[in-house]
Design a protein around this nucleic acid. Structure first.
Length: 555
RNA sequence: GGGCGAUUAGCUCAGGUGGAUAGAGCGUCGGUCUCCGGAACCGAAGGUCGGGCGUUCGAGUCGCCCAUCGCCCGCCA
């Protein structure tokens, strides 16, 4: 049973009956809200249906509300009362018994409570991280990784069929530049005095790679033209770096269903297929020796080059090809997660998706880059400059759970300050522990209960009314709202809502725990309270599961 | 110059698709343990939601203008 849906149906039925009775001559059913008011005096649920209707039927809102309330046919025991208040809100006060049913439901569904079927199995692909294999992942990538993975979990919980994908940009000048960088580092190790190129990747990892390269492959062929060695050295370096990226992500708890290589787009002819499709649509033209996509026809500021006058295709051409390939696979929705510095790129890719014949199926989420702080001072994070903090370093310092949780405490488009010293020095005060502690604390309670010979029987509806404290009812209402919260978070592609919900739930639990003993001399009361907190533990575990954070039995 | 995103308590940020009297954490100040895990709990102080105009029965939320900050604006990736 879902209370919210039950109520919506009741209200809709009431509206229809009011119309039949000639009290509200509306044509289309209004899209009314059903909210949880902030103030307890306004009930458990409140609807603005009468306010919306009043304007259409030209009667005072309160009169309409009264009429609707008269026509409601509520099942016995569901409500304590239904009132009309304020400008014309209809407020529903549910009976405590109605609320308590959620405990039975959670017990029945167990770890599946919170899942839903709104996704109806529709296929969603989430493409994220997709960092170029020219250097190790940094903190910003970590945020994208945490978000993408949690989003994928969230969508799966909401009933979508989800696939995770990593796109590897392994074509183009950056790989040559990487090869060049490696070349010069190896030369240095061979004792040659050379000047490292200004456009090279200066990170220490290239030096490490050079050492490995020298060990494995021996000295460079100094007789060869340096440029002729760059491609192979570049591929060598990219392969090694990518292996490191995979390892970092694996340790971060992030896995992918598919690692898609840009090279494959060319091998399989997708770039040409993309061009052909655009040409069919009349969206491709030649000018100034180059090939252009008519992006302006789909809302972009200017047309975009897909093939340079040199004959080389652009990065954008690859992306067109890649998305055509994706859409061809039949996804109902493709979600791309990018760094916010790529936002200027959104209009042209959206335009391309439309031109290819897949309007509305691409959703780009922009993640603001992480501002990394050390002792309050900003840390430079450019790959070229070499002075950056890696995801690996953060993982080693603060741990997977804390890092993921912190990344998921902000909306994607809000900047995030990540103070390493704070995270390191005060990791025990990290919000993640607050939530995990609630879970572990309950595990401890159950261990103690077991040691005392208390076994948790199946919930007995007749004894649920023993749960009547304000703290207990507040928790029950949070639990009952959880499935709706998951659906809303999934619909809006916002995993951070889960984070806040869990913090709230943990807070209520801690407070409840402090004020009232779960294990008491009264066996019935003990059972009832254990049912409740078992339900809390189940929901916390579910939410942490979406975030990809462990739900520990002890800490 | 154009565009995107932001602007909510001292700080960092939530605010579910427009609802009724504005929320949390941290910090500050003051309290709570003979008791299931104190990584906890309770209380207080702290706000003209950057400014203005508009739409609406009703705006932190939607539209326009302005201010400040960040980012983007290449036949780079």
């Amino acid at each position: 049973m879902r209370l919210r849906q039950t109520l919506r149906d009741l209200i809709a039925a009431g509206l229809l009956r009011a119309r039949e009775a000639g009290e509200a001559a509306f044509e289309e059913m209004p899209l009314f809200d059903l909210k949880n008011p902030k103030l307890p005096e306004h009930g458990d649920f409140s609807t603005n249906a009468a306010l919306l209707l009043a304007a259409r039927v030209k009667r005072p809102p309160r009169q309409v509300a009264e009429a609707v309330v008269r026509r409601l046919e509520a099942p016995p025991g569901l409500f304590d009362r239904i009132t009309v208040a304020g400008p014309g809100f209809i407020n529903f006060f549910l009976s405590d018994d109605a609320w308590r049913q959620v405990i039975l439901e959670i017990h029945r569904l167990g770890p599946a409570f919170g899942n839903s079927t709104v996704g109806a199995g529709r296929r969603v692909q989430v493409e994220f991280v997709s960092a170029n294999p020219t250097g190790p992942l940094h903190v910003g990538h970590g945020r994208g990784a945490a978000l993408g993975d949690a989003l994928a979990n969230l969508l799966a919980a909401a009933g979508f069929t989800v696939e995770r994908e990593y796109y590897i940009n392994d074509v183009g000048t950056q790989i040559l530049t990487l090869g060049k960088s490696l070349y010069f580092r190896v030369l240095e190790l061979m004792g040659r005095s050379v000047e490292f190129p200004a456009d090279g990747y200066q990170g220490d990892y290239v030096v490490d790679l050079a050492r490995e390269c020298l060990d494995e492959r021996g000295p460079l062929d100094l007789a060869a033209e340096p440029e002729s060695l760059f491609p192979e050295l570049g591929r060598y370096a990219a392969d090694r770096i990518l292996a490191g990226i995979r390892q970092d992500l694996d340790d971060f708890g992030v896995g992918f269903d598919r690692w898609f290589s840009e090279t494959a787009l060319y091998d399989d002819g997708w770039v040409q297929k993309g061009f052909a499709r655009l040409k069919e649509q009349g969206c491709l033209y030649e000018a100034e020796g180059a090939l252009w996509f008519k992006a302006t026809a789909f809302g972009d500021d200017k047309d975009r080059v897909v093939q340079r006058s040199t004959g080389a295709t652009t990065y954008f051409a690859s992306d067109i090809a890649y998305h055509l390939e994706k859409f061809t696979r039949g996804y109902d929705l493709v979600v791309d997660i990018w760094g916010a510095d790529h936002h200027g790129y959104v209009p042209r890719l959206t335009a391309a998706a439309q031109a290819l014949g897949y309007p509305g199926r691409l959703k780009v989420i922009l993640v603001q880059l992480v501002s990394l702080l050390r002792q309050g001072e900003p840390v430079a994070m450019t790959t070229r400059g070499g002075a950056f903090v890696t995801l690996r370093e953060v993982l080693d310092e603060v741990g997977k759970d804390a890092a993921r949780f912190i990344f998921l405490t902000r909306r994607a488009d809000a900047q995030l300050d990540f103070d390493l010293d704070l995270a390191k020095a005060q990791s025990a005060e990290n919000p993640v522990y607050y939530v995990q502690y609630a879970h572990a604390r309950l595990a401890s309670v159950f261990r103690l209960a077991e040691a005392q010979g208390v076994t948790l029987a199946a919930p007995d509806p007749a004894r649920l009314p023993l749960l009547a404290l304000v703290e207990e009812m507040d928790i029950i209402k949070l639990l009952a709202n959880y499935p709706d919260l998951v659906e809303g978070a999934a619909h809006n592609l916002e995993p951070h809502r889960i984070t806040y919900c869990l913090t709230d739930l943990a807070s209520r639990l801690h407070s409840y725990y402090y004020k009232h003993r779960f294990l008491s001399d009264d066996p019935d009361l003990t059972q009832a309270r254990l049912w409740l907190v078992k339900a809390v533990q189940t929901v916390i575990a579910h939410g942490l599961g979406i975030l990809g954070v462990a739900a520990p039995e002890s800490m």
